[in-house]
Design a protein around this nucleic acid. Sequence first.
DNA 1: CATAGAACCTGTATGC
DNA 2: TGCATACAGGTTCTAT
Length: 307
Amino acid sequence: MPELPEVETIRMGLLPRLVGHRIEDAHVWGTRIARAQTGGPSALENQIKGRRIDALARRGKFLWAELDSGSALVFHLGMSGQLRISEGDAVPRATHEHARMTLDNGQSLSFIDQRTFGRLEVSDYVDTPDGQVAGWGSERRSIPRSAAHIGRDPLDDAFDAGQVVSKIRQSRSPIKNLLLNQELVSGIGNIYADEALFAAGIHGLRMGKNVRRYEVEEVLDDVAEIMKSAIEVGGTSFDALYVNADGDPGYFSRSLAVYGLVGEPCVRCGTPIERVNIQGRSHHYCPTCQPRSKPGTNLRFDRLEQA
DNA sequence: CATAGAACCTGTATGC
DNA sequence: TGCATACAGGTTCTAT
């Protein structure tokens, strides 16, 4: 569920509570959320207990705490994961609470996840191939091994848009899927992919190689701008499943143009928004503003552009 | 290799 | 009211 803006909102909320503090105790109840951890929940507990958190960093939807042991505690929230701060350790275990850490400042950090697609893992580091810092909040030129397979996100200073554009234009997959492919460009999920495709006037089913270079550049610019705006208002909440570290929702849903708005009039032209399934995920789009064909090959679209 | 589809979970909304 | 189906902010494994 959380995409880059939501994960970044959580990171900012956690920053002053975690960085510089020591994890005094840790409990990992969930087996499934520790599935990537060699040795399972108990190994996870042992490797974080007593460690100080030196930094809290993010690339795409991956978040990690840099520990004084020389390893990283990596979080991925999946579809329904939450990281919540509470006062003290006396609070009873919440529904779907799979892990809790108590800190030397008297606060607790809980990992709560209804669907358990999220995970926790202690990982070592590998050098970044480009020699740049790993992502926001990190000063290291190395990234946790378990997050090293994803590409840089559009808000990263070292994001190479030209390379992403080239790769997208070599693929026969629908552009919507390419935007969701975290190895190509990370941080984009179903909401922001659809919003950016609408902003750029591109139908999500168009094959990557059939999208013009300037259009791909446009959609990458748009997704970065939309994500920045979303971060400013704390991300997108539809319900209690996404909240920040203090349990508060974000307000970007008020700014959405297409996501979840099937049947509503397009904000640009009034045509009802439609939805189509693209490889198992819903794609929301305006059939008028986002034609299926390339610019220059569709008379109706060209007339609209000239108007 | 690139691409498509299934699998992994729990909960809610909708229709019959 | 019960039951069946569809769908949900994601990733990863398997099959072609």
